[in-house]
């Protein structure tokens, strides 16, 4: 096994220190932006396990994000005395069930039909959100006041910026680490086999339908967790969370960051969040600019930002060795 070099260790330690100290360093608005970027980082990493690792192009990831987001709000609003963690647990359970049901139907198709159907199912969930007014609030959305989280050491209040930041950092940071480890597990290896050659996999004794279903449900639950935090951060959830736009968002983040590296989507999530923040102050048509960036990337830089970074590093290396 590779041991961490001192420089890497210093880098990771430094980054952790900055992340821990962020609430002391950043103004309220900036802290909120970082929190949101971390939420989207998990959303995008879960998406990239499908797109980059398994080669499955889904246009329906927002159905999980949205179900997680709505389930959290609905549970907290309707079940009196429910604790924060139980509400999240219920939300994850709901996304799990949704993943199993939709996944079961989608098992039968691959390639383009898979992509098409994920979009269709996303549209179905959006329609349910619109029509099921009594539960989802329809176009008005749902407000909520999240209960405080009582820990042995003290109390965390989700409506307080630094508190929700730390909660997000710990739980979603943990989830991101779990994803990173996932890529090295037996299941993680099998996901790569799925991308490379599903037919050969079957002749080696893998029931690839099971592989795909597990992956679909797993990434769905992670997206649901991200959605749950999105609700908590905003103390509000609207149909935006389950819309096609939310699917487009995760696709853009993941692709802009780069699908070939684990941290690509994390980079993409931060890039997108900050660029959006900057552009939306200048123009209401920022999505158009985002879309243009995306198309240019698809045409000229299919490796995304992390791919561009790698190219640049390789070029620098060549230039220095040539000297």
């Amino acid at each position: 096994m590779k041991t961490l070099r001192p420089r890497t260790l210093a880098l990771v330690g430094g980054a952790l220190l900055v992340l821990l100290a962020a609430p002391k360093l950043l103004p309220v608005y900036q802290l909120r932006l970082v929190t949101e970027a971390i939420i989207f980082a998990l959303y995008a990493v879960s998406y990239n396990l499908l797109l980059g690792y398994a080669g499955l192009l889904s246009f329906g990831h927002a159905m999980f994000f949205g179900v997680g987001a709505f389930a959290t709000a609905v549970a907290l609003n309707h079940i009196a005395g429910l604790s924060l963690l139980s509400a999240m647990g219920l939300a994850l359970l709901t996304t799990l069930l949704v993943g199993l049901t939709v996944g079961f139907l989608l098992l039968r198709v691959k390639g383009t039909p898979f992509s098409l159907l994920t979009l269709a199912f996303n549209a179905l969930f959006l329609a349910i959100g619109v029509k099921w007014h009594t539960v989802t609030g329809g176009d008005d959305g749902l407000s909520l006041s999240a209960p405080k989280l009582h820990l042995g050491l003290g109390v965390l209040d989700p409506s307080n910026g630094p508190d929700i930041y730390y909660l997000t950092l710990v739980i979603l940071g943990g989830a991101l680490l779990f994803c990173w480890r996932f890529t090295r597990t037996a299941m993680g290896h099998s996901v790569l086999l799925l991308r490379e050659n599903e037919e050969r996999m079957r002749f080696l004794g893998y029931n690839t339908n099971v592989t795909r279903l597990i992956l679909f449900v797993f990434t769905g639950v992670l997206a649901g967790l991200a959605g749950s935090f999105y609700t908590l951060l905003n103390a509000f959830v609207s149909l935006d969370a389950v819309s096609i736009d939310m699917t487009t968002k995760v696709l853009l983040m993941t692709y802009l960051g780069g699908t070939a590296a684990f941290l690509g989507p994390v980079l993409g999530a931060f890039f997108y969040t900050y660029v959006q923040d900057y552009l939306s102050n200048l123009t209401d048509n920022w999505p158009l600019i985002m879309g243009l960036i995306f198309i240019v990337m698809v045409l000229f830089a299919p490796g995304g930002l992390s791919g561009l970074g790698k190219d640049l590093a390789a070029r620098l290396k060549r230039a220095t060795t040539a000297d």
Binding site: R181, M187, L192, L204, T211
Partner: peptide, 30 residues
């Protein structure tokens, strides 16, 4: 008919894991 972008070891590992029933474990690092 192999796993083109993966290493030689990973290719053989795919077969060995399958035989040992380590196909979808989420806690075991091969």
């Amino acid at each position: 008919n192999l796993f083109q972008k993966l290493s030689v070891l990973d290719n053989v590992l795919a077969g060995v894991r399958s035989r040992r029933g380590m196909r979808h474990g989420m806690f075991h690092e091969p």
